[in-house]
Structure formats: C-alpha cells, structure tokens
C-alpha cells in the first residue's frame, strides 16, 4: 500500500485585477520591443507616410519644378485636373488595365497552378521555374526586350506572317488600338509566375482526403474542381486578387519602356501621366502632378470600397 501525502490544497485567493499599464510604462518596461520596431517605423515613416502626407500638401500648391517652394492655391489644381481630358484618358487606361490584366493573370495562373499541382504532370519543377523566371527579371529590361520581340520584324510577327495568320506585321506597340493591350499582355506574362506560386501554396492547403472522398462519391475532374477546389480557394482568391490589383497600378517601368504612354496617349496610364506632368513638362508642375496622384488615389479608394461592399452583398445573398 502506498501512502501518498499530499500537501494540503490551499484555497487560492482571487488574483488581483492586473493594473492597466500606461503607454509610457509599457514602453519603459518593453523598450527592447520598440527598439526592434524602430528601423521599420522610421523607414515606413520616411519613405511611405511622409511622401503620402507631403503629396497631399503639394496638391494644394502652385509649384513649378524650378522653384524651391510652391504657393498655396487651394483647390485650383483639382479644378484644372477635373477638366483635363488627358488625366481622364490616363485614368480610363488604368482602369482598363486593371479590368483586363488582373482577371487574366489571376485566372491563367490558377489554371496553370492546377495543372502544375498534379503529380501526373511531367517536368513540374522545370515549368514552375520557367514561369517564375520573368518575375525576377527587371521590368525595364523586359520592356526593352519585348520592344524587339513585338517589333514588325520580330519573332512574333515573323511567326504570324509565316503561318499566314496575318498578311502584314501587326503593329503591337505603335498602333493606338493595340498598344495598351500589348502592354497588358507583357505585364501578365511577366508577373504570372508569382501569382502561380500563390495559387500553388493555396492548393496545397486542401487536404487530399477531400479529393479521395469526392472520387469515392464518383466526382470527375470538373466536379472535383467545382465542388472541392474552388470553394476552398475562394478566401485566397480575394487576397490574391487584391495583391494583383495593387501590382496592376504599378506598371510605370513597363509602359515607359514599351510605349512611353503612346502613341497619341493610347497607353498612358495615370503613373505615366503623373511623371510626364512632374518631370516631362516644359515647366514641371509638381503641385498639379501631386493633385493627380491624390485624385487617382481617392478614386481608386472609392472603387475598392464599392468592390468590398459588392462582395459583402454577394456573400450575404449567397448565405
């Protein structure tokens, strides 16, 4: 027989409610956390917050680039901008870019990811690497190379003409009807690899048991995709689309090297418009360019809010 002597259990007194520490106290006690955060806070403040706030202020100035300082002119820049056809042209081009390029990149990458996620696909690793290579290539270099590839005497046109698909070379970059779409095509090609990686990561979160269960229930490839893969990928779709949308608004390097925004402003997106106004004008207009950036920011924010509200409404309707 074993006798166990246990210490008598003491009734614990209820712990006193922890004192709420002041911010100053927290900073003093956990100073090392803030020390580690400092480089990020300083960097973010200097290179993101400050330029953002400064551009808001500049938008209210008449500031020729040659002058050291600008003069406060209230909303005059915004009034001019509102009546500027070229601003709205570039705004429209940016939206067209967004509307075509993002679904194309997201959709195409998803299809490729599904194919490359299958164990039966040969050379999966090679294809993934090949598709990712353009992502790590500098945008401006891609632009320069593609001016040669899409040239009238370049390999694309050579293939089109030789295969009798067209009678004469297609002017991909020099025609106002084609230039924006050509840039979209190059952008999708360049960034497809990174979206592919996102999708592959997302696909690998789906447990195999679900597919096995679906197969036991008699589901074919399509039904597997429709009723297993797609519903489980939806949360990722929102995030991936958002990331790609942000990317589609940062296309300055490609547009400048491929078309310079032309011909006749046909591929001029808002970033190029801002650059042209700030640095390319006879008298650079820094205040006006900042106003364009601010207005574009506000308008895209409004669109993003509208999109978020739309998604929420759609989800409620589906529930």
């Amino acid at each position: 027989m074993t006798v166990t002597t246990e210490a008598p259990v003491r009734q614990k007194a209820p712990a006193p409610a922890p004192k709420r520490r002041t911010v100053w106290r927290r900073m003093r006690d956990d100073w090392w956390i803030y020390l580690f955060l400092l480089p990020t806070v300083v960097g973010y403040g200097l290179y993101t917050v400050y330029p953002l706030v400064a551009s808001w202020w500049y938008a209210f100035l008449d500031w020729p680039g040659f002058a050291d300082v600008g003069t406060f002119i209230g909303f005059a820049n915004f009034e001019l901008l509102w009546a500027d056809d070229l601003f709205w042209n570039s705004f429209r081009n940016s939206l067209v870019f967004l509307a075509i390029a993002v679904p194309l990149r997201v959709g195409l990458a998803l299809l490729l990811a599904i194919v490359l996620n299958r164990r039966s696909t040969p050379f999966r690793g090679l294809f993934r690497t090949l598709l990712f290579l353009p992502v790590v290539t500098t945008g401006a270099i891609v632009g320069v190379v593609f001016t040669l590839i899409l040239d009238a005497g370049g390999p694309v046109n050579l293939a089109l003409v030789k295969s009798a698909l067209v009678d004469s070379p297609v002017d991909f970059l020099g025609s106002s009807g084609m230039s924006l779409y050509s840039v979209i095509g190059v952008w999708v090609w360049k960034w497809l690899g990174i979206t592919l990686i996102y999708w592959l990561a997302a696909l690998q979160t789906i447990p195999n048991e679900l597919y096995e269960a679906a197969r036991i229930d008699g589901a074919g490839n399509w039904k597997e995709f429709r009723y297993v893969t797609l519903p489980l990928l939806l949360p990722f779709l929102v995030v991936i689309t958002l990331i790609d949308m942000v990317g589609a608004l940062n296309v300055f390097d490609l547009v400048m090297t491929l078309t310079g925004g032309g011909p006749a402003f046909s591929s001029e997106v808002v970033e190029v418009y801002i650059y042209r106004t700030a640095f390319g004008a006879t008298v650079p207009q820094l205040g006006y360019a900042s106003a364009a950036a601010v207005l574009f920011g506000l308008l895209t924010m409004a669109l993003a809010i509208a999109q978020a509200l739309g998604i929420r409404a759609a989800r409620r309707a589906m529930a």
């Binding site: 011909p263 004008a281 006879t282």
Partner: peptide, 24 residues
C-alpha cells in the same frame, strides 16, 4: 510669362504621332 505657361496638348509633335499612327 513663359514660366507661367503650361504645356498645351496634344502638341504639334503629338499630333504628328497621332496622324502617322492612324489615331487621328
């Protein structure tokens, strides 16, 4: 006065580009 002047678009060069590329 020149320092006050804003660029007018499309400029003659931009018009030539638009005409030669078939936009106008």
């Amino acid at each position: 006065a020149l320092a006050e002047m804003r660029d007018v678009h499309p400029s003659p060069g931009e018009i030539v580009q638009a005409v030669l590329t078939g936009s106008t």
